[in-house]
């Protein structure tokens, strides 16, 4: 489904160099990949580059979705193709209601696919059922998007959008940061409920704890702009025990501490 080859990227117009330095990743339909890495390794950059954030430019390499390059595809059309980014810091948007936002999002995707738009009644039914599913406080839905939401409520609102839009490839950018155990459970449930052979996930995280609720198929370690190691869930456990020291440049050769 997703094929990332030799991806290099940097902040647009930035003097300092690349953040991604030759990242390779293949995600097949139905797979859940976890990308772990220390702060500053390029995790969020990668998540945002996948979604097409204009602040970054790809200087080398390619991102292919179903065999076609999406580098030139604007963010809204990437969404139509089924890419979804759950933001680490979702923007607060005055005067735009969550219902209105999601209706516009779903309408534009349906339009792009030549499908019929949902009527207000049909959409409201869908919206209300998803609100109940992700257990977000319905009172928040009367407010402006994310305005006055707590950190956990913002993340839950991202999960609401995920549940409504049902993307083919969901990228969760540190969705677990700042969440308590209950909120973590909600996020995990939302993801687990959507697991299907047609849908893939990339879970970007610093910590292993979310991966106790969502079992990934494949775990990668991202360090200094490259995926430096790939393994199964046991790799995440190793990171939890030993940290990222082994993966940082100049220390690759060091053996794991005895007794690990």
């Amino acid at each position: 489904m997703l094929e990332v080859t030799n991806l290099h990227a940097r902040v647009v117009d930035a003097e300092d160099g690349e953040i991604l330095k030759g990242l390779n990743l293949t995600v097949k339909s139905g797979e859940i990949h976890a990308i772990m890495g220390p702060n500053g390794s390029g995790k969020s950059t990668f998540a945002n580059v996948l979604a097409g954030r204009p602040d970054y430019e790809v200087t080398e390499g390619d991102i292919k979705l179903d065999g076609e390059s999406i580098l030139e595809t604007p963010p809204n059309e990437r969404a139509h193709k089924g890419i979804f980014l759950a933001f680490q810091y979702p923007a607060e948007i005055p005067g735009v209601r969550p219902w209105q936002f999601m209706k516009a999002a779903l309408d534009s995707r349906n339009e792009a696919h030549g499908e019929k738009k949902l009527s207000v009644r049909e959409f409201s039914k869908l919206f209300d059922s998803k609100v109940a599913e992700v257990k977000i406080n319905p009172d928040l839905m009367k407010r402006s998007l994310n305005e006055g939401f707590s950190g956990g409520e913002k993340k839950r609102n991202e999960m609401l959008q995920l549940a409504i839009l049902e993307p083919r490839l969901a990228v969760l950018d540190e969705t677990d940061s700042g969440l308590d155990v209950d909120a973590m459970g909600i996020v995990a449930n939302a993801v687990n409920a959507l697991r299907s052979p047609e849908r893939s996930f990339i879970i970007v995280t610093h910590y292993v704890r979310l991966l106790h609720h969502i079992t990934p198929d494949i775990v990668h370690v991202l360090a200094d702009g490259r995926l430096v190691e790939t393994g199964g869930p046991e790799l995440a456990e190793e990171v939890e025990r030993e940290g990222y020291k082994r993966f940082l440049s100049g220390q690759e050769a060091e053996p794991a501490p005895a007794g690990a």
Partner: peptide
């Protein structure tokens, strides 16, 4: 970008 990323 937030709005665009959802397909709007």
């Amino acid at each position: 970008f937030y709005l665009l990323s959802r397909g709007v």
